[in-house]
């Protein structure tokens, strides 16, 4: 339930952002920056959780468990990084196409 509410709020903010910006190139640029920021924050949170688990559990070697969880954050972070890169490439391509059109 909490998940659905969160995703709903995120979707609403994305729609508001698109309406507010109202510029295709700027939207792509902002989404690229957003994806990069999100990937770094996910890496950071994952690393933080790994440190917390490793420090809280002392009676067994918890590295295998914390690495298992950290790898999930790494995977999601990388997906966001790739999305950010794709948006960045798309933005650069559109800028080149736009400049070529203007020069003609």
């Amino acid at each position: 339930m909490i998940g659905y509410i969160l995703y709903g709020i995120i979707l609403a903010i994305v729609i508001i952002l698109i309406i507010k910006i109202n510029n295709e190139l700027l939207i792509i640029k902002i989404f690229s920056i957003l994806s990069f920021l999100l990937s770094f924050s996910v890496f950071f949170i994952g690393y933080l959780i790994k440190i917390i688990i490793d420090n809280k559990i002392n009676f067994i070697n918890s590295i295998v468990i914390s690495n298992f969880i950290f790898n999930k954050f790494i995977a999601i972070g990388f997906i966001n990084l790739i999305i950010g890169l794709l948006f960045a490439i798309l933005y650069i391509l559109l800028i080149i196409i736009y400049k070529k059109r203007v020069n003609k």
Binding site: G3, Y7, S41, I76
Partner: peptide
């Protein structure tokens, strides 16, 4: 809105993990 979006998305990712 961008800061809020990054913050909420990070919470959503953590929650889903």
């Amino acid at each position: 809105l961008i800061i809020l979006l990054v913050f909420l998305s990070t919470i959503a990712v953590t929650y889903s993990v």
